[in-house]
Amino acid sequence: KRPMNAFMVWARIHRPALAKANPAANNAEISVQLGLEWNKLSEEQKKPYYDEAQKIKEKHREEFPGW
């Protein structure tokens, strides 16, 4: 399985609240909304998620060399 990128790290945190706020929305609609919200963030706001994604990527590389 591929390691999460910065957007996926961010979305994992924000998806539950968005789903709760929009109970009639299906998963595809929630994903679209998450994408729109992510694109509104500044690079500075995204930086912690890029940092976390890098850590996940490095850990994945250690656990699965050659993947």
Rank of each mutant, 00 (worst) to 15 (best):
K1E: 14
K1S: 12
R2K: 04
R2T: 11
P3V: 09
P3R: 11
P3M: 15
P3A: 11
N5A: 05
N5I: 05
A6F: 00
A6E: 03
A6C: 00
A6I: 04
F7Y: 13
F7V: 02
M8S: 11
V9F: 06
V9G: 03
W10R: 01
W10A: 01
A11K: 02
A11M: 02
H14E: 08
R15K: 13
R15D: 00
R15V: 02
P16Y: 05
P16I: 10
P16F: 04
A17G: 07
L18D: 00
L18F: 14
L18N: 00
A19S: 08
A19I: 11
A19R: 13
K20G: 05
K20T: 08
K20E: 09
A21M: 08
N22V: 03
N22T: 06
N22G: 01
P23L: 04
P23N: 05
A24R: 04
A25V: 06
N27D: 14
N27T: 03
N27W: 09
A28E: 13
A28F: 12
A28R: 08
A28N: 13
E29Q: 11
E29P: 00
E29N: 03
I30L: 13
I30G: 02
V32P: 02
Q33L: 14
Q33E: 08
Q33F: 06
L34Q: 02
G35E: 15
G35W: 15
G35K: 15
L36N: 15
E37K: 14
E37N: 04
W38A: 00
W38V: 02
N39C: 05
N39D: 12
L41S: 00
L41Y: 03
L41W: 01
S42P: 07
S42G: 05
S42T: 09
E43I: 09
E43Y: 08
E44G: 08
E44D: 12
Q45H: 03
K46S: 00
K46N: 00
K47A: 07
K47W: 04
Y50I: 11
Y50P: 00
E52K: 03
Q54P: 03
Q54V: 07
K55F: 06
K55W: 05
K55S: 10
K55Y: 09
I56H: 14
K57L: 09
K57Q: 15
E58H: 14
E58I: 06
E58R: 12
K59Y: 07
K59R: 08
H60G: 14
H60W: 04
R61Y: 10
E63K: 14
F64E: 15
F64S: 15
P65S: 14
G66Q: 06
W67H: 11
W67N: 15
